[in-house]
Write a protein that binds this DNA or RNA. Sequence first.
DNA 1: TGCAATTATGTTGCTCGAAATATAAAATGC
DNA 2: GCATTTTATATTTCGAGCAACATAATTGCA
Lengths: 145, 145
Amino acid sequence: MDQQRFTLDSHLCFSLYACSRAIFRMYRPLLDELNLTYPQYLVLLVLWDRQESSIKELSQVLSLDSGTLTPMLKRMEASGLLERSRSLEDERIVTVRITEKGLELQDRASCIPASLVESSGLDINQIDMLNETIRTLMSSVDNYR
Amino acid sequence: MDQQRFTLDSHLCFSLYACSRAIFRMYRPLLDELNLTYPQYLVLLVLWDRQESSIKELSQVLSLDSGTLTPMLKRMEASGLLERSRSLEDERIVTVRITEKGLELQDRASCIPASLVESSGLDINQIDMLNETIRTLMSSVDNYR
DNA sequence: TGCAATTATGTTGCTCGAAATATAAAATGC
DNA sequence: GCATTTTATATTTCGAGCAACATAATTGCA
């Protein structure tokens, strides 16, 4: 393996990490208007789709553990976006349900994806193809686990 | 824009974010043996390449700001991997220089890239191509700034 | 039945990551 | 030469992200 392989720029992991943060920065001004952080926006994407979810399901879908989700969901509950309640059938399970206030944000957020696609300068098909490639890479990486 | 565009899986930003963290998890057991975190490893990649750097240069190369770098570099100095010193010509500038101990880690880390390429299940050319694609995307995103 | 193993969530402690602000040194302009 | 602006770094504060551990409910099996 050549020496060049040890530079920062040759590391795919660094590109992914830096690009991910660059995209966070693009989202921020848009999400600031909704008083959301980026991970909170991801939680809402899930809840807008299915109205409610257990913490375990959220954890699997977002690949975040309870140490991250529990305090984050508490903050979101405090700001009225969702409600948490213990399941009656199985008291270990906490169900998270979106509130009216949380649903209202969906309309205000509806312009975000298109707006960011445009800012990226990429064609929507390029984006979808890249997305598929990354998802494939991630499944290999996750299988390795 | 169709409704499907608002699912989590359709978001390239989420794939990048989740994939980046999945790769962090792959690095962790290898970096644990060197007592390094992933961002610290990135700093060392730069310093292994150029021996010394100002904080400003590190900040630009890694796209991390002083609020992240200053405490991180202090921890790395405390563990003996590098030294920080004010420039004599311009006392605003802090130069970070790798130590002997920091250089020694380079040998012990030399197997990491190949090891991770193998675990990814991807061909090295696929990885380089994907890297180029991501870097192109990031430059568009960063131009937008 | 009863007890060990598993499961779902919560807590603690540490490290990023970044916005906002502070501080001190250097550059600039009059 | 001195005030203003710019530059480089540091500090504060908050929100993730995650490992390690704790806790309580459920399951499974002898």
